[in-house]
Design a protein around this nucleic acid. Structure first.
Length: 664
DNA sequence: GCAAGGTC
């Protein structure tokens, strides 16, 4: 029998369809297997990595095992997907040839090897080869399976090296930081090649904001008129008050139009969705990990295409028109008409052959989906239709006005043809009015204004802007970025959106910067990528790369001052538990845990002020402050049901009030 | 209980 192994179930089914025509779908251990009608060929899909590298179980006790011993440990490969492993073993018993048909990339090569290693345990001498394809189209697949190659051992080794290096650095530094600060159990503090540089970006930005000193500047605006009124801005931003005042006083009662330009400008429709852009847009109304989960569900329900892709160009193999036509009988009939009137797809910059851009593949009614599912589905549909719709057209006007030597500029824009804007309703249409002017025309100055303004600090990253930044620095992949962000939240490193780092985050980044700065920089990923390339070329050995990491980490462990590290992080933890100021003595109020949790004064035992807290459920401090008392708003996540937020001091005052009444 | 990477 010929056994074909793919990266996931879905591709297994599609490949069976292409290679066998009709196929039989059987289950082994509940795992889908697709057989040719004579039963001589079988395709089975994995679930990505079905094994993972880890330390042997005896290293599990963080407090008893010295961290140094992790550096000498032999790593083991643990089977994560037992059912799949058993199923391929069973199939291998009957097979005389195995073809690895996982994704054609570094991780895919390793995923294939993992499956082959499991098979070789029962069939050490089985023949194995590799099918390489970059799109699941009949042509590509047939070509790939008739021109099979050898497995690329070096490529798989490169990916395995990444796993080992990531685990080693992650485990050693995670334990170092967690053990020295006493943050154990589910409160541990993590460190990693991707998460730590990402967190550093967020912390560095927060520092810039804290250290920002606003500087004043002056702006002059004036209202002019011919037959209509409009306002214009002085071309200069004045840094000195005297200069601004001098210019301001020069402005007389009339002015003259120096330049007036009017032109029509096309505004290109948006480009097809890749994962990053999709999450960015969904980020306007939903956190990315949730958006990704929903997209995953919609994909499995056959409503949208595969949501993990880098591609922003529709391949020729998709029948775009057929898809649009399906929407003529849907909630998007009007939008489909607009797309059909044009049908010229836009193209993004990145063109890859892995998967098409995210687009709808099936029709859903609003009533069939949950509220959030519908929002994501609608976003994908509207984006898709917009990429096929006509460009928008704007009438743009620019004027330059001379008021006694002081130059003002005014701009106007008016939407002439809405085009794709009627379809993709997530961008606001903002028009500004500027009447038609003539060069040399004399205007009246109706009023003028001199305003003092302040420069503003940079803004915090949002979920979508930080994902974009990670992409720019090659941190993580399209499939992992949103999960890395989620990690930063659950570790208590960031709160809210825009992302505000906690004091613990500051302390951890500071600690890492002084002990092992490279883990906080994108350079580590860049270096690892270079090493992997060289391993793939056969010019570098895995052992050398691992040895280099081992040397570095062992030096870190030798020199790190754990007491000092711990002190700094614990101080951060204390600051993070501050929820407000004590109304009795003015000192910090903290969330404390002494036989149950409560809010207590940091001045205890001098000050015994306290506020009770609910004992059950997970309690989080949000980034929001109560408008009335300046207290941190808390969020309670009960084990069942919806979470809610409250100001502990408001609750306390209400409770006091009630108590008074019952006494009376 | 540690990472990041696949996939669900």
């Amino acid at each position: 029998m010929w056994l074909i192994i793919t990266e996931k179930d879905n591709t297994a089914r599609r490949i069976a369809g292409i290679l066998f025509g009709k196929y039989k779908n059987e289950k082994i251990n509940g795992i889908n297997v697709y057989l040719s009608s004579d039963g001589e060929k079988a395709v089975i899909g994995l679930k990505g990595h079905i094994v993972e590298v880890d330390y042997p179980a005896e290293y599990n006790n963080w407090t008893k095992i010295p961290i140094e011993s992790l550096l000498q440990a032999d790593l083991v490969k643990k089977i994560k997907e037992k059912k799949i492993a058993d199923a391929i073993e069973k199939l291998a018993e009957k097979a005389d040839l195995v073809t690895i048909a996982t994704d054609y990339d570094r991780e895919g090569e390793l995923i294939g090897y993992e499956a082959l290693e499991i098979i070789r345990k029962v069939r050490p001498d089985i023949r194995a080869d590799r099918a390489k394809y970059s799109a699941i189209t009949p042509d590509e697949i047939r070509k790939a399976f008739s021109n099979r190659a050898e497995l690329n051992y070096n490529l798989a080794k490169a990916a395995e090296t990444r796993q080992i290096v990531d685990l080693m650095w992650g485990a050693v530094l995670t334990r170092l930081i967690s053990l020295s600060s006493g943050r154990m159990g589910k409160n541990f503090l993590s460190v990693g090649r991707v998460q730590s540089p990402t967190l550093r970006f967020i912390v560095d930005r927060e520092k810039e904001i804290r250290e920002f000193i606003p500087t004043p500047y002056w702006e002059i605006t004036a209202v002019f008129s011919n037959s209509e009124k409009f306002s214009a801005k002085h071309e200069k931003r004045f840094l000195k008050k005297e200069e601004a005042e001098k210019a301001f006083s020069r402005i007389g009662e009339t002015a003259v139009v120096r330049k007036f330009v009017e032109k029509n400008v096309k505004e290109a429709k948006p480009t097809p969705f890749n994962t990053t852009e999709f999450l960015r847009e969904a980020g306007k109304f939903m956190p990315p990990d949730r958006a990704m989960n929903i997209a995953e569900n919609l994909y499995m329900a056959g409503l949208i295409s595969y949501p993990r892709t880098d591609n922003t160009v529709y391949p020729a193999s998709i029948n775009l028109k057929a898809i649009v036509k399906k929407f003529l009988n849907s909630e998007f009939a009007k939008e489909a008409e607009i797309a059909l009137s044009h049908m010229k797809p836009s193209r993004g910059r990145k063109e890859t052959k892995d998967h098409p851009p995210i687009h709808p593949v099936g029709i859903a009614r609003k009533s069939e989906l949950s509220k959030d599912e519908w929002r994501i589905y609608e976003l994908v549909v509207r984006r898709f239709l917009a990429t096929l719709s006509p460009d928008a057209l704007w009438a743009v006007r620019n004027a330059e006005i001379d008021a006694n030597g002081e130059i003002f500029r005014a701009n106007g824009k008016k939407l002439l043809k809405a085009g794709w804007r009627q379809v993709y309703t997530y961008v606001k249409t903002e028009e500004t009015h500027l009447p038609e002017l003539k060069e040399g025309e004399i205007l009246r100055v109706l009023s003028k204004k001199l305003e003092e303004k302040q420069t503003k600090p940079p803004s915090r990253y949002t979920m979508s802007s930080i994902i974009k930044l990670m992409e720019k620095y090659n941190l993580g992949t399209k499939s992992t970025r949103h999960e890395i962000l989620k990690k930063l939240y659950t570790r208590g490193y960031v709160r809210g959106n825009p992302l505000k780092p906690t004091e613990v985050a500051f302390a951890v980044i500071d600690a890492l910067k002084s002990e092992a700065e490279v883990i906080t920089l994108p350079d580590m990923t860049a270096k690892l990528e270079e090493d992997m390339d060289r391993i793939e070329e056969g010019k570098l050995k895995q052992e050398r790369v691992v040895e280099e990491s081992r040397d570095f980490l062992s030096r870190v462990l030798e020199t790190a001052n754990r007491e000092e590290l711990g002190r700094r992080i614990i101080e951060g933890i204390r600051k993070d538990s501050v929820v407000g100021r004590c109304p009795e003595c003015g000192r910090d109020l903290l969330i404390r845990k002494v036989k149950g949790r409560f809010i207590g004064c940091s001045g205890y035992p001098d000050c015994r002020f306290s506020i009770p807290l609910p004992q059950k459920g997970r309690l989080e401090i949000t980034a929001k402050k109560c408008k009335e008392h300046g207290f941190s708003v808390l969020r309670l996540r009960p084990s069942r049901g919806k979470s809610w937020t409250f100001c502990p001091y408001c609750g306390y005052l209400e409770w006091k009030e009630k108590e008074k009444k019952t006494e009376a």
